[in-house]
Design a protein around this nucleic acid. Structure first.
Lengths: 213, 213
DNA sequence: TGTATGACCAAATTTGAAATCTGGTCAAAT
DNA sequence: ATTTGACCAGATTTCAAATTTGGTCATACA
């Protein structure tokens, strides 16, 4: 018998794959169990409800994307700069089929997963961004003529504008191109000249890791 | 008997009011006719279909907003500068209850009106923005290290990010505050120092008026 | 003895046909 | 010549029956 954790991983893998292919509404617990080669009851040994299972899938994706960001941050501290951060985050989401699908596809299709507490807390995300921008402001790496709450609001609006544009705008070029455009836009809108050292990168990485608690 | 144009205006007024209050789906042609104090058939003397009537309401609102913009442009040529333009356009939309409702409210509720050909053509809007940015680029009033199509894409993403944020973000301060924040963001992201004269304002006003053809 | 299962149940969802409503027409009234 | 509202077909809504599915647990199994 496989270890409990291996089975959990297998179920999440299968569920993620089916979610990408068929969407939230169409995937049943039994579908997942059959595809994972186990009984339906066994799924419930791992998660109490359907929503919690799919929430776990979503959370794993988000944590994976955050993990990619942290890796990028440690490989190159300059990613701690706001414009680099924006581009890396943008790509970290679009590179993952499930998250990409949630961004591009019909919001309706993902039902309770979006905006539900299960898996990921948007409020915490907001607080994290505010902390991050506070740190950058303290080091003079972003403009300081705007208060941190305004800066946070504006940055989020710009970032989400580019994410939203993926859904609506006619797709020109690759999304790496769009990530560069986002980076350029954020840089001139909010960044101030300066460099990021490993200590800053680590601080930001710690903030991000806190999101995955 | 009132002039034909007056009756048309009356119907559009009544329809706009009912659209704001009840939403696209809930308003019937008969509702509008009764509220306007005329027979249902009379409505059809002015528009061939329901969609065309509501499209006309929508078009009138958009043209009104554009008219406000043109007025602002003629009163102060500096509104031709991209960041001023963004803020004025933002406010021109949010100040009109119907458009504000379409931005804030459930997209679903406005059905075919959004994205339909009736009343307003998004493709033309796009082309207008590209022309406008081309004119600003030629005068050095926006950054020229980005090609006009990229500049247009990025500007639209930022603008729509702020519009979209009206729907999702927790409302802090007034929307005049958010318009200022948008203006500041667009200014540092895309604008270059320079002044706008009356000739430029008139050129931009002409472009805008072309949208209402 | 602890783990896994799928038959089972209640609740949610879907289906489909009947009832109702509404966009659009046009013969009649003005 | 202009306006109207009764009228009709097609769209939408209703509502109950049929089906599906989330979640449980007695049983099988290792």
């Amino acid at each position: 018998m496989v270890a409990r954790t291996d089975r959990e991983t297998k179920i999440l893998d299968v569920a993620a794959d089916m979610l990408v292919r068929h969407g939230y509404r169409r995937v049943t617990i039994d579908d997942v169990a059959v595809a994972a080669g186990i009984g339906k009851g066994t799924v419930y040994l791992h998660w109490k409800t359907r929503e919690q299972l799919f929430g776990a899938v979503f959370a794993r994706e988000v944590h994976g994307a955050i993990g990619d960001l942290v890796t990028a941050l440690r490989a190159d501290p300059a990613v701690a700069l706001l414009h680099r951060f924006a581009a890396e985050f943008f790509l970290a989401i679009l590179r993952r089929p499930l998250l990409h699908g949630m961004v591009i596809g019909d919001v309706q299709m993902w039902g309770k997963l979006i905006g539900s507490e299960a898996g990921y807390d948007g409020g915490r995300h907001n607080a994290m961004m505010a902390s991050y921008l506070g740190i950058l402001a303290a080091r003079g790496l972003v403009r300081t003529d705007l208060a941190v709450p305004e800066l946070t609001y504006a940055f989020q609006a710009v970032y989400e504008g580019f994410i939203y544009a993926e859904r609506t705008a006619a797709p020109t070029g690759t999304y790496e191109d769009r990530a560069r455009l986002l980076s350029t836009t954020v840089e001139s809108a909010f960044s101030r000249p300066g460099t990021a050292d490993a200590a800053l990168a680590e601080e930001v990485a710690a903030l991000l890791s806190g999101l995955a608690a």
